[in-house]
Design a protein around this nucleic acid. Structure first.
Lengths: 205, 205
DNA sequence: AAATTTAATTAAACAGTGTTTAAAAAAGCA
DNA sequence: TGCTTTTTTAAACACTGTTTAATTAAATTT
């Protein structure tokens, strides 16, 4: 079946061609200003072809956001060398925030925009496996901290969510430009300063 | 000058007519699906008229988000009866989160969407006074806590931002539907549970 | 090799969007 | 009443996501 193999291959190639064009335009102009026609122009096909590979625009951006989780996971891999669970937890926070600040559009897509998550709910497999995988890792580390005697009197699930919320809150206020309320002298460094304060709190509780 | 007084009045009336129509449609269908033509239909005028009262769509939603801050501030007014700064801080958190959960679309507009903040940057008076006013109140309370000896070793600005980030993180993950990662048994109550955990932490540091 | 079937691709249309412009209608003033 | 100013509208522009039927290209069969 050599022919259908090649056809399969060509289909995959065009699909990833669409995806890379979409990613390029998305990082240049944002999700709203990246149109199906823009993507089609970029790959020199007609707009209609895209609907043979993706159900709708949301599915394209869901596929893109998967790539973002892959990238974040890769950055998290250095944590395997950090034995101490509390140290690992802090390092996770630093990596998470660094990823968000360095890739604001991708972070936005992964954790703020409605497009990819809407696609999850619209499709048959209605669980957000990308997010769940990442949160599992956080929960595991928090549980390890609890086992080692840290965070006494706390439960893993709410505490994990609290920690996630804290770092997500900081970067999403930054990305969505709500940090103007911060005094000018602290504005540029507020996320780093607050993360330091957060680490100090984690040591104390 | 009775006539120009009436004209002034009529202008204001039409402006707030546009605004209330916009608000109604926005709460029904969201910002993206509320079109200028929808608003014009609702008030039984032609679409063009709207541009005599607002520069663009963003300005309309900036005006709406101001109303949201007014509503939030009103809810915060009960705090004047809470003397103890740490108790007031916690109550602020509860009110903030309650407001967000009960008015998700308005909260979204105020703290997540780019429309109102884009208008702030596009217009001449480029400071976000609505957000600044609210944050000032938080900072004041945190400072009072510091004066009373709480949160030793922390600075007001980073700590205030950290606290804001924590509550904003929780509700924005909820509003933007990223809470699916939470175990089913905790999912419905995760924000409340995490807020409780946060209060416990605030007591300890 | 030619005819037929299947798959890939496109052009065109639909129903919408925010915004601008020039024309028309209404209101105010002399 | 005639003139001027203000208010309002119709129409156009350049887009948008998506669906449909028609067309082109490729693969298979005769």
């Amino acid at each position: 079946m050599g022919i259908s193999d090649r056809k399969e291959r060509e289909k995959e190639e065009l699909k990833s061609l669409i995806l890379s064009a979409a990613k390029k335009l998305f990082l240049q102009k944002g999700i709203e200003k990246t149109s199906i026609r823009n993507i089609a122009d970029q790959i020199e096909y007609s707009p209609g072809i895209i609907y043979h590979y993706f159900r709708d625009k949301n599915e394209i951006f869901h596929a893109l956001h998967q790539g973002g989780f892959q990238a974040l996971m890769n950055k998290m891999m250095v944590l395997e060398n950090v034995r101490h669970p509390l140290e690992r937890l802090k390092a996770m926070g630093s990596i998470y925030i660094r990823f968000a600040i360095e890739n604001p559009d991708m972070y936005d897509l992964m954790f703020i925009k409605e497009a990819p998550i809407d696609h999850v709910y619209d499709s048959e497999h209605d669980d957000w496996k990308e997010g769940s995988g990442t949160f599992d890792y956080l929960r595991l580390t928090v549980k390890e901290c609890l086992e080692k005697g840290y965070f006494q009197g706390h439960q893993a699930e709410p505490l994990s969510f609290l920690i996630w919320s804290t770092v997500h809150g900081m970067v999403s206020l930054h990305i969505r430009k709500r940090c103007e309320v911060i005094q000018l002298e602290d504005r540029a460094t507020i996320v780093d300063q607050s993360l330091e304060a957060f680490f100090k709190i984690l040591d104390k509780i």
